[in-house]
């Protein structure tokens, strides 16, 4: 189940990054909202990883090179705008992806049907913040633009076909680009160069090639579990 591992790792890693916000959010409502999104993603990750094997063995005992998540989700949080740019790119993708999976008759359809409702909220949350920050103050506009620009090069990888998923990938890319363009323009921001539009695009997370911050993230996440081999928690 390469596909369940890829989607499970996306959810697991993004959930972890969002969990790092706990106690640091800009406003109390966002403590609740970010934790909510993190919990939804963790729930998705647990279901997906359990299709592959033991969820804790997979989360805690694999080395960095064995993770199959896209590089976008492992990127450090940065400021709130950076996190929202990551959320926008990923939640629009995940919403369309799960929408297609729910409509198809594959093994992941029941999970996707449930998750797509959760992800609709994540997408809406990211859209609302993109609009507020883009069309807020001069400072928030600049920060949001920086976030979109910095993470753009990690978006191309989202559309690399995952083996075993009944997904129309070109349609997914078109849908994603149309929605992100619409939101970014309404937010008075500028869409960075189009995917494959000349800029060097990163991304081989699905092949287990990750970025430097990911190793540190895993070291923190796995350290306690690995310190007590065989223990139950």
């Amino acid at each position: 189940m390469t596909a369940a591992l890829a989607l499970g790792d996306d959810a697991l890693v993004l959930s972890h990054r969002l969990g790092e916000w706990a106690g640091h959010a800009p406003v109390l409502e966002e403590e609740v909202a970010l934790a909510n999104i993190a919990l939804d993603l963790l729930g998705q990750a647990r279901t997906l990883l359990s299709l592959v094997g033991d969820e804790d063995e997979l989360a805690y005992l694999r080395e960095e090179r064995a993770f199959r998540n896209v590089q976008l989700v492992e990127q450090p949080n940065g400021d709130f705008a950076h996190t929202m740019a990551r959320q926008l790119y990923f939640s629009v993708y995940q919403h369309l992806l799960y929408g297609q999976l729910a409509a198809a008759d594959g093994r992941l359809a029941p999970l996707a049907a449930k998750a797509v409702k959760e992800v609709a909220y994540h997408r809406d949350h990211a859209e609302q913040w993109t609009l507020r920050l883009g069309d807020g103050t001069e400072e928030s506009h600049a920060r949001m633009q920086r976030g979109l620009d910095a993470l753009w090069r990690f978006t191309d990888e989202l559309f690399e076909p995952v083996e075993g998923l009944p997904v129309d990938w070109p349609a997914l890319r078109d849908g994603w680009l149309a929605q992100v363009t619409d939101i970014v323009e309404r937010a008075t921001l500028t869409l960075p160069g189009g995917p494959g539009g000349g800029a060097w695009t990163a991304g081989a997370g699905r092949q287990g090639i990750h970025t430097e911050p990911f190793g540190r993230m895993l070291a923190e996440m796995q350290h306690l579990h690995r310190s007590h081999p065989g223990a139950t928690w």
Partner: peptide, 26 residues
């Protein structure tokens, strides 16, 4: 301890708890 929780089940419980505390604050 959220980022170091030793199992995914405990991580979910802890995140939900910390979220509840933010909710209580509200």
């Amino acid at each position: 301890w959220i980022t170091r929780a030793p199992s995914l089940r405990r991580k979910a419980i802890l995140m939900a708890k910390v979220q509840d505390e933010a909710g209580h604050g509200l």
